[in-house]
Design a binder for these strands. Structure first.
Lengths: 196, 196
DNA sequence: TCATATGATACATTAAAGTAGATCAAGCGC
DNA sequence: GCGCTTGATCTACTTTAATGTATCATATGA
């Protein structure tokens, strides 16, 4: 396999993982067999443009032929778009758990405005999932939600909602949660779009 | 054929023509049969990445997967690099004629420093061939060179060299040759890269 | 007029991409 | 332990990309 092909395979794999898709999920979106995606990502095939574009489009990527002279600039741009901090696996896992818990509560038909509010807060929070470095709060919220089923009722919902709101605001305002837990931070940032 | 594929084919063809390569010349560089290049450019095949990269590299293009979000910026950059004024067919033709004439003179083994100088000037001039709007001077130089063979000898070479030097300098300093010859110009241009 | 270079096509052959489907081991949640 | 999902791997089959070579009509130049 050529260098170009390997890079391509790595790019596709990285893009898929960044979107949190499994090979099978991507397969469904792109209309390409999972077995083939596996082979592609391992660089075992010399794929055709149709396969490439199908998969790339499913991953919100666009195939481009850029003049060599412009290639460095394109790489810079691509990097700047890609280098948003990535959600940690733990964060994603915890968020998935929370989502499941919320689905379950919905199935209980509680139908309180408090619950609707909580769901909205959850959706808004998810937009910043990449910023989550610490899942304690999420875990705490999930604990609170468990109480809903057992005894807590709406009171537990309100407690969860309060925590969710505070957590979301913290993320939205760019207050890294390490800030509160006193973890060391990187001394620099690759992208300059940080408004602190 | 999909839209993506057609665009790809068009891009490759445009890039090849811009470089002034025939399908056969490109074939030699890229290691891909001319017949296949023809099919590719007509969008008749779903080419593989290896073919694509081979041809693209021969055309100084780089295959890239850019995030949709970054695609507009990439297009802008690419355009800015591509939109250097293109050499007119007449200019290219006249330059080819000149090159041939120079080759012929070289075969005469004149071996004068004046001729070497002339060749260097020619090479330098070619770098600006995109700026040539008017081929009168080139034709004039070629006329002068014809005299070398018949009678003129080194004197004719010197005359040609003098003209070449002046022409090259004019191009290098961005003095459009229309400026001097006062030819009628089109009232509009499709591309906006005209610096008047 | 003759020669040359161009891009488009034709043909037979080979290699491999692509599909559909099943299976496997590893990892994780319950 | 059990069930589910993950990515990797296998099979069998179909489709087609790619090659090599050759031809063709058409410009364009000598």
């Amino acid at each position: 396999m050529s260098y170009e092909s390997e890079k391509l395979a790595a790019t596709l794999k990285a893009a898929r993982e960044k979107k949190g898709l499994s090979q099978r999920a991507l397969s469904a979106h792109a209309g390409v067999p999972q077995s083939h995606i596996s082979k592609i990502e391992s660089g075992a095939v010399n794929l055709t443009v149709s396969s490439l574009t199908a998969i790339a489009n499913a991953l919100d990527l666009e195939l481009a032929l850029v003049p060599r002279k412009a290639a460095p600039a394109v790489r810079t741009i691509t990097r700047s778009v890609n280098d948003v901090p990535k959600a940690t696996p733990e964060a994603r896992k915890e968020i998935a758990r929370l989502a499941k818990q919320l689905e379950h509560i919905q199935s209980l038909k509680i139908d309180s405005p408090v619950f609707e509010n909580l769901q909205r807060q959850f959706r808004e929070m998810r937009q910043f999932e990449n910023l989550i470095r610490n899942t304690d709060t999420l875990r705490s919220i999930r604990e609170a939600l468990k109480a809903v089923e057992n005894a807590g009722g709406v009171a537990a919902l309100q407690e969860a909602s309060k925590q969710m709101n505070s957590f979301r605001n913290a993320l939205a305002h760019g207050i890294a949660d390490e800030e509160r837990t006193r973890l060391p931070r990187p001394a620099y940032r690759l992208d300059g779009d940080n408004d602190e």
